[in-house]
Design a protein around this nucleic acid. Structure first.
Length: 824
RNA sequence: GCCCGAGUGGCGGAAUUGGUAGACGCAGCGGACUCAAAAUCCGCCGCCGCAAGGUAUGCCGGUUCGAGUCCGGCCUCGGGCACCA
């Protein structure tokens, strides 16, 4: 049982409480079912917020992080989670990242890691690399300077080599939500297409051909231009022209994110170069440099068919290029206006392809390209290799050395760990490891001469890509212990937010495979998470004011007075209200669970966050109802106490199984078995809200059951069952009630109750009777009554007769034990 | 922009997956107990209507004896988009 471990941002918020309570409900339920449950906890402790704190408050990232961990651990402990704290670690512990460095070296040796140039967001004022979230409207968040794209040589994991395997294996993840599987499939983005060469006219030497990739070779006769990325070698070759250089520079000022690229206005620069259409040497297309072409995908060059691609259409409209439809839904001529047609159809305006279906035309073009030797059908993936280099201090150092003589040399394993230096300063922009006077000075592990350490640290996604494996043997001298990993892996149930649907979960799947290849995990663990549940997020409005300089100041919900009219700070300043979003420390829209725990206790907090909202759905936080939840738990406690004291005296006779239960006792026993069924199904199906609803209903029935010797045994059984069923959610209350009621040992250790099918069966059933689809009457019939009997009973019913108004039905639809519909 | 979700009373939500829409809870209202209050217990509670009945699951249309559920077209909100974690 594993919940995604938290980033130690400072204090836990109610979203953590909800998430970890869900995990604990499952863990405790599984314990009661007799499983050996491993339920660990740790901290995803490297990352930017610690460095930001260092810059803003002058506190060392390590000090800040470990203090946050201490606070959060102390906040979690009173919640009564069944966590094995002896396995706790933080990813910033040297003991952890030392093993991560060893894994890196093994993967480097296995050819899973390499270096290449890649583009980053560069802040020219702060002289630093920016994360996408630090780029706001194309400017650095601190400096306000226009962000540039810059190329740096960085470290990469070869995840794209496993694209096919990662894609195929998604089919086997049948206990993952379909939406996550769909998102991963789309992310990997397998496509089949044609890669081919255009012959160029007027291009500089070395660029006699232009290689492009397309998934729609069928639309080749609708082509009206070719476009290349600003970083395409051909674009680079043209940069001697100041106009080209100006345009590519402008392209590089865009953010590196896909979103920035896709939402930016489509812009291009006509290079004056032309390419020949492969099927018609007399047909020439202009070559543009365009801001929406990615160098990382395909060949960094495309041909544009505006009629059948929205981006191409936008571009063509902006530059007055022809728009020729070549696929028609009805097979006849049609025109494209503002919206490209991407649906199925037959080819038109396409010479030898006319009349073919899209798929057929694609095959035909590929065949002709291959026959003609100017192109090949290829399979490509959208998935890019995983760049892990970060030019930051607070991360796992990449254990390699740059030697003037030997080049890039892996550090020797016996020299691990490469520790982060303690004495760093954040007063200069850039990576503190670069500024450190001595840290990067070292000797080459191969030749012994003076060398320089790699100052890049690893992406924190690396840390979280194997922590689950480390939990199986957190103190082992190697990254994993084979026996322990074989015993505990895989994670039977993983719980976390949908926001991790792609990156974290895909990287972990890759990493588990990489760990298997390097001998750190058994083959059975290459899919590390058997079942996944993605819980919804706890969201809250944000509250903001602005400083005189225009900077946004965020305010905690606790500091804001909110009513229908709006929100104000205590001293009266009007506050801007932002729509509810995921609780995050940076926006300060966090709610601390501590006041609720202090006032009502951990059980109430647990019970309350499990009530009402379905776990997979986002909830807007409100504390309204916490008090009522607490009153309910008090009611359960009193009920247990009263039943315990009343039946204690006659305990023997009360527990005597030989007595046949009376009618009232039987009704109560049936209710208990229904509750067992409902709660068990609720927990198994991650519908904790329904389990809670079932417990409320059962408690109501138990509280109203008449007292007396006839019902004493049934009430005692019911009360004990209630304690057991509540145990996963409210363990403290459950244990106390269990003890009062004379339960043996711990409630959590008692075997989970099982519903008796005989006690669930009802003899009669109420059938709604509809006339023309509207409900007009109800009849009670024996369960399983046959159609004829039901029909007779229905027609004999006075209410039905009234609704029919003397007429007789044309048709009678009887759904056994469900409904009857009379059609007039 | 692309991909993935979600929308049901005043509120959180339920509905055996095509079969009584609103389980359960919150809030509200009424009552009992109490000198009083709190706590507790009992009852009512989608909307319109005295009632019969009508109407109602984001919007528009469709399939069906029957649609919250299936199909088509929208709207709104949320998540992800590769350096936030």
């Amino acid at each position: 049982m594993l919940e995604m471990f938290p980033y130690p941002s400072g204090r836990i918020h109610i979203g953590h409480t909800r998430n970890y309570t869900m995990g604990d409900v499952i863990a405790r339920y599984k314990l009661s079912k007799g499983f050996n449950v491993l339920h660990p906890m740790g901290f995803d402790a490297f990352g930017m917020p610690a460095e930001n704190a260092a810059i803003e408050k002058g506190v060392h990232p390590g000090t800040w992080t470990y203090e946050n961990i201490r606070v959060m651990r102390e906040q979690m402990k009173p919640m009564g989670f069944s966590i094995d704290w002896s396995r706790e670690f933080a990813t910033c512990d040297v003991e952890y990242y030392a093993h991560q460095q060893a894994l890196f070296l093994d993967m480097l040796a296995a050819g899973l890691v390499y270096r290449k140039a890649a583009i980053v967001n560069w802040d020219p004022v702060d002289m630093t690399v920016l994360a996408n979230e630090q780029v706001i409207d194309g400017r650095g968040w601190r400096s306000g300077a226009e962000v540039e794209q810059r190329e740096l040589v960085q470290w990469f994991f070869r995840i794209s080599d496993m694209a096919e395997e990662l894609l195929a294996a998604i089919d086997g993840l049948d206990k993952w939500p379909e939406k996550v599987r769909a998102m991963q499939r789309n992310w990997i983005g397998r496509s089949e297409g044609l890669q081919f060469r255009f012959e160029t006219l007027g291009a500089p030497p070395g660029h006699e051909t232009l290689e492009v990739y397309t998934t729609r070779p069928d639309t080749l006769f609708g082509a009206s231009f070719a476009a290349i990325a600003a970083d395409h070698p051909l674009a680079r070759a043209l940069e001697d022209d100041p106009a080209v250089a100006a345009f590519t520079a402008e392209c590089r000022r865009m953010g590196t994110s896909e979103e920035a690229r896709e939402t930016a206005e489509k812009k291009g620069f006509d290079t004056g170069i032309r390419v020949r259409h492969p099927f018609d040497p007399s047909w020439e297309l202009p070559v543009y440099i365009a801001n929406f072409i990615l160098m990382d995908y395909g060949t960094g060059a495309i041909f544009g068919c505006p009629a059948h691609d929205q981006r191409d259409l936008d571009f063509a409209r902006a530059y007055g290029l022809p728009v020729v439809p070549v696929v028609s839904p009805a097979g006849e001529d049609f025109s494209v206006d503002a919206e490209a047609y991407v649906g199925p159809g037959r080819l038109i305006n396409s010479r030898f392809l006319d009349g073919m279906e899209v798929a057929q035309a694609i095959r035909e073009v590929i065949r002709r390209a291959e026959d003609g030797g100017w192109g090949t059908g290829v399979v490509r993936y959208r998935l890019r290799d995983w760049g892990i280099s970060r030019q930051r201090y607070w991360g796992c150092p990449i254990p390699v050395v740059h030697c003037p003589a030997c080049g890039v040399v892996p550090e020797k394993k016996e020299n691990l760990p490469v520790r982060l230096p303690e004495d760093v300063s954040f007063d200069k922009p850039g990576n503190p490891l670069d500024h450190h006077p001595t840290w990067s000075r070292t000797t080459c592990p191969r030749c012994g001469s003076h060398a320089r350490r790699e100052t890049d640290t690893m992406d924190t996604f690396v840390d979280s890509s194997w922590y689950f494996a480390r939990f199986t043997s957190p103190h082992a001298p190697t990254p994993t212990d084979p026996d322990e990993a074989a015993y505990w892996m895989n994670v039977d149930q993983y719980i976390g937010g949908v926001e991790h649907a792609i990156l974290h979960l895909l990287y972990s799947r890759f990493f588990a495979r990489a760990m298997h290849r390097t001998g750190h995990l058994p083959e059975t663990a290459i899919e590390p998470f058997d079942a996944l549940f993605t819980q919804g997020m706890v969201v809250h409005e944000t509250y903001a004011t602005r400083t005189p300089e225009g900077r946004t100041l965020w305010h905690l919900p606790g500091d804001v007075v909110r009513d229908e009219a709006g929100a104000r700070l205590a001293e009266g300043t009007l506050v801007e209200i932002g729509s509810p979003i995921k609780m995050s420390k940076s926006k300060k829209n966090v709610v601390d669970p501590e006041p609720i725990i202090a006032r009502f206790g951990a059980d109430t907090a647990r019970w309350f966050v499990m009530s009402d909202s379905p776990p997979e759905r986002d909830v807007e936080w409100t504390a309204a109802g916490a008090e009522a939840a607490h009153r309910h738990l008090g009611r359960v406690w009193r009920l247990a106490r009263d039943i315990a004291s009343e039946t204690a005296a006659g305990a023997r006779s009360a527990d005597d199984p030989g007595q046949r239960p009376g009618e009232e006792a039987l009704a109560l026993l049936k209710a208990a078995h229904r509750a067992i069924r409902d709660v068990t199904e609720g927990i198994e199906g991650f519908a904790f809200n329904k389990a809670v609803a079932g417990l409320y209903a059962f408690t109501n029935i138990l509280a109203r059951a008449p007292a007396g010797p006839e019902t004493a045994a049934a009430r005692r059984f019911a009360a004990r069952t209630l304690a057991q069923l509540m145990q996963p959610m409210t363990p403290h209350l459950a244990e106390e009630a269990w003890a009062m009621l004379g339960g043996e040992g711990l409630c959590v250790s008692a075997p989970w109750p099982e519903a008796d099918p005989h006690m669930l069966a009802e003899e009669s059933v109420t059938l709604p009777v509809q006339v023309n689809g509207k409900r007009r009457a109800e009849i009670v019939v024996p369960r399983g009554a046959d159609r004829a009997a039901v029909e007779a009973a229905v027609l004999a019913d006075a209410g039905v007769q009234r609704a029919l108004g003397g007429g007789s039905p044309r048709k009678v639809i009887v759904v056994p034990d469900r409904i009857v519909n009379l059609v007039l």
